[in-house]
Computed example of a mutant assay.
Amino acid sequence: MKTQQYKIDINASASRVYDLMLNQESYKLWTAEFGPTSDFDGSWAKGAKIIFTAIGEDGKKQGMVAKIRENIPATFVSIEHYGVLSEGEEVTEGPAVEEWAGSLENYTFDEKDGVTTLTVDVDTTEKYIDYFNETWPRALKKLKDICEASS
């Protein structure tokens, strides 16, 4: 597992960036860069289970099962992945999960003079590094556009 880091400066308050990043409707917009049906089921509350979902090529819902390790509004969000959603079933052990189990996705919001630096630290396997290096910057640019629109 390797940690990749992505950063972007957004001309908006940390609370606005945080709210729009996690709001279900705007979440679907910026994460569409990862997949057009990207969504989530669950809660962003500390300790809560959340499932990051998308509709697979077979038309079935798939995704990652995770828990919110920390959520300090407009400051820090930490997600720990511990399973996958496959054919409507949560799988939390076995080969499909081993490469991801325990991986973290951390978001840090640092606001200065009305500009928020959003830092994303993501644990990933070697095979997804190139994909993440292409997709995360696009997704963060989309989030920036959403946050800066009519702010």
Score class of each variant (00 low, 15 high):
Q5Y: 01
N11R: 04
N11W: 00
A12C: 07
A14C: 08
S15R: 15
D19T: 07
L22E: 06
L22H: 07
L22T: 10
Q24N: 12
K28W: 06
L29V: 15
W30F: 15
W30Q: 03
T31G: 02
E33P: 02
G35C: 14
P36Y: 12
S38N: 08
F40D: 05
F40R: 10
D41L: 04
A45Q: 07
K49Y: 07
K49V: 08
I50R: 12
I51N: 14
A54C: 12
A54R: 12
N71Y: 08
P73R: 04
P73A: 13
V77F: 14
I79V: 15
Y82S: 01
Y82L: 03
V84K: 13
L85E: 06
S86W: 11
E87K: 15
E89F: 05
V91K: 08
E93H: 09
G94E: 15
P95T: 04
P95Q: 09
V97S: 09
V97W: 11
E99A: 07
S103G: 06
L104F: 13
Y107W: 02
T108N: 04
F109A: 00
K112F: 13
K112V: 12
D113Y: 08
T116S: 04
T116L: 02
T116E: 03
T117A: 01
T117M: 00
D121C: 08
T124E: 12
E126A: 09
K127Y: 15
I129E: 13
Y131Q: 14
N133M: 15
N133S: 14
W136P: 01
P137E: 02
P137F: 02
A139N: 00
L140M: 08
K142F: 06
L143I: 00
K144Q: 11
D145R: 08
D145E: 10
I146W: 07
C147R: 00
A149V: 02
S150G: 06
S151T: 13
